[in-house]
Design a protein around this nucleic acid. Structure first.
Length: 889
RNA sequence: GGUCGCUUAGCUCAGUUGGUUCAGAGCGGCUGCCUUACAAGCAGCGGGUCGGCGGUUCGAAUCCGUCAGCGACCACCA
């Protein structure tokens, strides 16, 4: 069969993925083998594959495929996340394009649209993962909102409520005015912002004409001002103690209160207190028993209808204004009224909603929370004492920091797309007292309406309108995927849990990783995973985050089309040490593609050989002995690298093994002359090496390795490299080590000869004599030198010929006699330079050895080694001096 | 403001407990080759005062201090 000189991935990738699928190659069932489980960090159900996924999923696939080939029962469970807020936003946007407002729909109608959208777009990303080669057990594909997962979520909510770990309360929360829902602290992103500091005049009620100056960045909240706070120790504000101030424009008379919270020396020392619109002000309001006026609608427009009638009439013009329009208007009106002392530029941090990118409004709101102290207590120790290991370990401190300062988790969202909170209220009572005053002990929490009804016979019940934070389902993922919440003792959960490795980004260490650990210990009394591999962020080669607006984010499918999935995977892995950001560059995929091509061409060479029953050449025999040792050495190192999750290094090891050792050295040594057959022994060895190399490479590059493995020798239908087992390698024996290191010396000798050839412009076809001065330490490998450097003879001499070029390997001098004359000047200069180097080296060694403290203080082995260095250097210097003398003679 | 981390070749990074000729790898670069598997290739060759300063030690890329620069995360200074 004639094969193209270039590998074409497109031809084989789909074919072999289909082959794997047809033969259920990724499927896992509990059996007697050790389980190796990975749960995918579920991508958003309506998302599409981006470079971050490529990195993350490639790593998982490498680990899973490697584990499978180590004989474990590997199970990689795929699935998607309902991504409550993100998906709801997308659905609302689409409805809007169709001219439908969410507010015009009932909950059920809206959910119908959301499910339609999910069915339409859901799973696209899972199809894309197949293109990448991911070996997920697709029969296990799950969704955070499918039946099993939903029942688990509801059960856990009820359970935690009964344990007193979930409560409902009126709290200051992060409010997203765009989506009109509460968010958790983790969903707020702070950005530096250039804003303005407004200095407002608050007239003193008791002393007309005098005023206090209050600095604020948010003048639009003055409708809700209920006090001005000073630090009791602040000198310059002593005169305000006990006074009352008039809120500008608004006209409300408010007290001056004192609290040490106000920092002395900051701003004017006067802080306006608006309990409904700032978390700290709320705290002050609580301490000082102040009223709260919520002056914003849920979409952050001014609403003064809750204020006193006379104040309402003062502020009528602001009614209904957007918060930022109102800020400008108020500033202008204050200025015109002479109540604005000044404006100053000011840099501060403003919180934005992670999903909608709208500034957060602190808002007093009735929400559901989880008491987190309990969970922090159970989740901290296992990470700190390495029951669960983080790679890299530096994230342990990040983790500890968060858990030691844990705050309660706001889990309710004012959304429809999500798990609806299983809390029920007596409709009649609710009508009478309203949500906020509804008594805690009259709330019924139960998995279903029927069960709730059973607890409150005769009542008309209404369910809580809220849905749960998406992460409230994600945190159960490693358990709920195996139905371990509802059926805590089933065969699957017992077999697959705890999972082995979690691969994810450090950005969700709090959102997800920490909370899975909490849920794991709460519900399984056991860790959810043994190792966490934190990937970096994929950036462009200039170090910028990939983003749509910069246009620096390549489409993974496009890259796969250009370089092949194996090439893209390799490109990604080449620069992806755990935890470091990776600077992605197309040229890395090119390197991957080139490597595939190299493998392809090695295959072409080998499969083109004719085998005959001829004697095995000595060079081939020796090459096999050497490569046996080399393969073992790298195989062992590879195991070590995998143990430490150093996947880039692992890949580089196999890369060099295949390219440098196998292709450049081994194949060249055993390659028969053109048109000649190869002997059977060498051929069989070569096939077995190729087979092993493909297995080592398979986790990184599944497609090409399967394609070639299927063709390197006869295979039966249904066989796959995936089911092959990698040998377990031991460290090299001393003899093997010597062989490998001698071979390295041989390579140097060969390079030395080649360099001379290049310098003297001698043809590689012209055989040369090699003289070894003194004794030949590489005697047993002479055949290698002969074959690779085309030597006519290798002779041991006591003194080298007059006209020759020489070089040193170790302490041995090698010389190649030259036919013509040599440039004495040049040779001398080279030798003098060598001499200078070795004399300097000797000097530094002698300095150590003549230092009594070194000789007495250092371990004997180190001192002996220095002595050896001394001897070596002296012998080299002597050799070089002789050469110089000979040249000068 | 707090915490953690980083600075080694042109680029991206290794360098485990201080000690082999320890200063490395890949890529790029330079030189020569279209040599019958592969120019997406082959052969060969350069290249770094290990961020600065100080200290500990017989010995420091490695440990300590300090300065400079960079980054990440956390945090209620309006």
């Amino acid at each position: 069969m004639e094969l193209a000189t270039q590998y074409n991935p497109a031809e084989v990738e789909d074919k072999w993925y289909q082959y794997w699928t047809e033969h259920k190659a990724f499927s896992s069932k509990p059996d007697g083998r050790e389980a190796y489980t990975v749960v995918i960090p579920p991508p958003n159900v309506t998302g599409v594959l981006h470079m971050g996924h490529v990195l993350n999923e490639t790593i998982q696939d490498i680990l899973v495929r490697r584990a499978r080939m180590e004989g474990k029962n590997a199970c990689w469970v795929p699935g998607t996340d309902h991504a409550s807020i993100a998906t709801e936003a997308k659905v609302i946007k689409r409805l809007k394009e169709q001219g439908i407002n969410k507010s015009d729909l009932t909950r059920d109608q809206f959910l119908k649209h959301a499910w339609d959208w999910t069915d339409e777009h859901g799973g696209i990303i899972l199809k894309q993962l197949r293109k990448l080669g991911c070996s997920c057990d697709w029969d296990r594909t799950s969704f955070t909102m499918d039946e099993v997962r939903s029942r688990a979520v509801i059960k856990v909510f009820c359970d935690l409520y009964e344990k007193g770990l979930i409560y409902r309360g009126l709290r200051m929360v992060n409010w997203d005015p765009e989506r009109q829902t509460a968010l958790s602290d983790e969903e707020v992103i702070y950005h530096d912002e250039h804003s303005k500091f407004y200095y407002l005049k608050y007239m003193v009620a008791e002393e007309p004409g005098k005023y206090a100056i209050v600095a604020t960045t948010r003048p639009e909240t003055i409708f809700g001002d209920v006090a001005v706070c000073i630090n009791p120790k602040e000198e310059k504000n002593q005169w305000l103690k006990g006074k009352h101030l008039i809120v500008p424009i608004v006209g409300r008379v408010i007290p001056v209160i004192e609290d040490r919270y106000v920092e002395i020396g900051f701003g004017t020392g006067c802080l306006k207190v608006t309990p409904a619109h700032d978390a700290n002000d709320y705290m002050l309001g609580q301490t000082h028993n102040l009223p709260t006026y919520d002056i914003f609608t849920p979409d952050a427009h001014v609403d003064i209808t809750c204020l006193e009638p006379e104040i309402q009439s003062n502020c009528q013009v602001y009614q209904g204004m957007d918060r930022f329009d109102c800020r400008k208007q108020i500033a202008l009106d204050l200025k015109n009224a002479g109540l604005l002392e000044k404006e100053e530029d000011y840099d501060n941090k403003v919180g934005y909603s992670e999903r909608t990118n709208v500034p957060i409004e602190p808002r007093l709101s009735l929400q559901w929370f989880i008491r987190m102290q309990h969970f922090a207590d159970i989740a901290l120790p296992p990470v700190m004492n390495d029951d669960i290991q983080f790679y890299p370990a530096k994230y342990k401190s990040t983790y500890r920091n968060w858990l030691e300062n844990i705050k309660d988790w706001c889990i309710s969202r004012q959304l429809w797309w999500g798990h609806r909170i299983p809390a029920y209220y007596d409709a009649e009572l609710l009508k009478q007292v309203g949500q906020e005053s509804y008594p805690e002990d009259k709330i019924i929490v139960a998995p279903t309406l029927e069960e709730a009804q059973a607890k409150a016979p005769g009542k008309t019940l209404v369910q809580d309108e809220g849905a749960l934070d998406t992460w409230f389902s994600s945190w159960l993922w490693p358990i709920s995927l195996f139905d371990g919440i509802e059926n805590p003792d089933n065969e699957e959960i017992n077999y697959y849990y705890p999972t082995a490795d979690l691969v994810t980004g450090p950005d969700i260490i709090f959102f997800w990783v920490a909370r899975m650990i909490m849920a794991g210990y709460e519900y399984k009394k056991q860790m959810p995973f043994k190792h966490v591999y934190f990937t970096g962020i994929v950036r462009d080669k200039l170090g910028r985050k990939m983003s749509k607006s910069l246009g620096n984010s390549p489409d993974p499918l496009d890259l796969i089309a250009r370089f092949g999935a194996d090439g893209v995977r390799m490109g990604m892995m080449l620069s992806a040490p755990a935890g470091n950001d990776i600077l992605f560059d197309d040229s890395l995929c090119e390197q991957g593609r080139n490597f595939n091509n190299k493998i392809w061409n090695s295959f072409r060479l080998v499969q083109g050989w004719q085998v005959a029953d001829v004697a095995q050449p000595e060079a081939a025999k020796t090459a096999c002995e050497w490569f046996d040792a080399k393969l073992k050495q790298v195989g062992f190192d590879l195991q070590e690298q995998f143990k430490q999750y150093r996947l880039s290094e692992a890949l580089m090891l196999v890369y060099k093994l295949f390219w440098d050792e196998f292709s450049a050295w081994y194949l060249e040594l055993v390659k028969p002359a053109y048109g000649q057959p190869i002997d059977r022994v060498t051929y069989d060895k070569t096939i077995s090496y190729f087979d092993t190399l493909l297995k080592m490479l398979h986790p990184f590059m599944p497609f090409i390795t399967e394609a070639l493995w299927q063709n390197i020798t006869e295979r039966k239908d249904g066989e796959s490299i995936m089911f092959e087992t990698l040998p377990k390698y031991e460290a090299l024996s001393d003899a093997e080590l010597k062989l490998v290191s001698d071979f390295e010396a041989v390579k140097e000798v060969i390079a030395g000869i080649r360099t001379i050839r290049a310098q003297k412009q001698m043809s590689p076809k012209e055989a040369v004599e090699l003289q070894v001065v003194g004794q030949n330490p590489l005697e047993s490998l002479s055949c290698i030198i002969t074959k690779s450097a085309n030597t006519s003879a290798i002779t041991v001499v006591t003194e080298k010929s007059g006209i020759c070029a020489s070089f040193l390997v170790g302490t041995t001098e090698y010389a190649v006699p030259l036919a013509g004359s040599i440039n004495v000047e040049e040779e001398l200069a080279k030798l003098e330079a060598d001499l200078k180097y070795y004399e300097g080296f000797l000097q530094s060694v002698m300095k150590k050895l003549s230092n009594e403290k070194f000789v007495n203080g250092a371990p004997a082995a180190v001192v002996d080694n220095e002595r050896k260095k001394q001897a070596d250097a002296e012998s080299k210097i002597a050799t070089i001096r002789e050469s110089i003398a000979a040249l000068k003679a």
